[in-house]
């Protein structure tokens, strides 16, 4: 399966985290749980289309597009 950035994940799409690219927010992203193997589902977006809320490790975390581009993921299965 090919790699892509979390920001490209369609709404309700499912993926697994591979890594976080070096960026100022890297530590914080890993701190909330965006680490290798974590399952992520995109849930809903703010009225203006950004940020997006993701389900991650049992909780809901909102990220801006500009931060989600640094989270590299794979898989694009539909959410059951």
């Amino acid at each position: 399966m090919n790699e892509f950035a979390l920001s490209e994940l369609p709404l309700h799409g499912f993926c697994r985290v591979i890594r976080v690219e070096p960026c100022p927010a890297k530590l914080r992203l890993e701190g909330v749980g965006f680490t290798e193997g974590a399952e992520v589902v995109s849930l809903f977006r703010a009225p203006s289309g950004d940020p997006t809320a993701y389900s991650l490790r049992g909780s809901v975390v909102a990220l801006r597009r500009s931060d989600a581009v640094n989270v590299i993921v794979r898989g694009r299965g539909e959410w059951a």
Partner: peptide, 11 residues
């Protein structure tokens, strides 16, 4: 420039 925004939405 605006920095990152990472916010948990509690239940």
């Amino acid at each position: 420039k605006p920095s990152s925004f990472i916010l948990e939405l509690p239940p």
